[in-house]
Design a protein around this nucleic acid. Structure first.
Length: 287
DNA sequence: TTCTTTGTTCCGGA
DNA sequence: GTCCGGAACAAAGA
């Protein structure tokens, strides 16, 4: 479940391996991703050089002359990099575990630097969209997004103004991409735990101190996560690689019925559903 | 067979 | 008109 830090790590990995390369061939094994892929459309970037790779929220953008390729990894999208003629995948730009089945390799980009970039996606909730435009601001998906959580635009003042007259609960607020873009269910659960705030608390009852705490913790968690290579996924690029330790760092996510990790708290982690999403919180410290 | 997982979108109710 | 939350949707694995 790639959220902002994971997508940032993927971007960095792609910058090292495929940036500035020219795409010389594209093969589509399965065009039924979230949105149907058009081979005809995609072929327009054949013989084009990848000029730049950027990230906005959880989206990746490949920049070409006259074209922008918008990519969302959905739940299980990942990039693999293999060397031409090798049968084995020698590098993975990002993964949660090593159970990568070739049957989920949906797109192959052959590059002029001897590498093949493969898009693998088990659930196929990811998507690729090609735009014949120059500015990322013109992309409709990106227009709706709120500020990047790590930018200066996301601060206490902005937070305070945004939640004025808002009735929704804090969990749904943090999940709202038009409020802040890039957080997903896992990081929201963790941020609320660290900030000691109950996920169902109304925005109206969040005080200024808690706003400060939330803004601080959101930035801190994301930065830490990125510095560690995306949460706990740090062995990308490693062929031998131990199994991804995806859940290693989490305090509450997926920890139903365990005891709170805070020293001197004996609370139990409870699981509830909020807007059809799993939410985990400590029954004692998240009041 | 049913449930779970995600981000986005849609829809009914307030 | 606007806001909010629940449900639907995509696919696959347990």
């Amino acid at each position: 479940m790639p959220e902002l830090p994971e997508v940032e790590i993927v971007k960095r990995s792609l910058l090292k391996t495929v940036n500035k390369a020219k795409i010389i061939d594209i093969k589509i094994n399965n065009k039924n991703l979230r949105y149907k892929l058009s081979y005809k459309l995609l072929t327009q970037i054949i013989n084009k050089k990848i000029l730049k790779i950027s990230r906005r929220s959880k989206y990746l953008i490949f920049h070409f002359q006259h074209f922008l390729l918008l990519i969302h990894l959905g739940m299980t999208g990942k990039f693999l990099i293999t060397r031409k003629r090798d049968k084995l995948i020698i590098k993975t730009s990002f993964y949660y575990d090593l159970n990568i089945l070739p049957k989920h390799n949906h797109i192959h980009f052959t590059l002029n630097n001897g590498l093949i970039l493969i898009y693998n996606d088990v659930r196929r909730f990811g998507f690729f969209k090609l735009y014949k435009i120059k500015e990322i601001e013109e992309i409709s998906f990106l227009k709706k997004l709120g500020p990047e959580p790590l930018s200066h635009n996301f601060n206490e003042n902005y937070f305070h103004k945004f939640i004025k007259n808002k009735k929704k609960n804090i969990k749904n607020l943090l999940m709202d991409q038009s409020f802040v873009s890039g957080l997903g269910n896992i990081y929201v659960n963790e941020v609320l735990f660290i900030s000691k705030i109950h996920p169902l608390r109304s925005c109206k009852k969040i005080n200024i101190n808690e706003i400060k705490k939330l803004v601080f913790n959101i930035k801190k968690i994301l930065k830490t996560s990125i510095s560690k290579g995306g949460s706990s996924i740090k062995d990308f690029g490693n062929i031998e690689g131990q199994k991804g330790q995806f859940q290693q760092h989490f305090h509450v996510y997926g920890k139903e019925n365990t005891i709170c990790s805070r020293i001197s708290c004996a609370g139990k982690i409870k699981k509830i559903s909020i807007s059809s999403r799993s939410s985990f919180y400590c029954t004692i410290c998240q009041a």
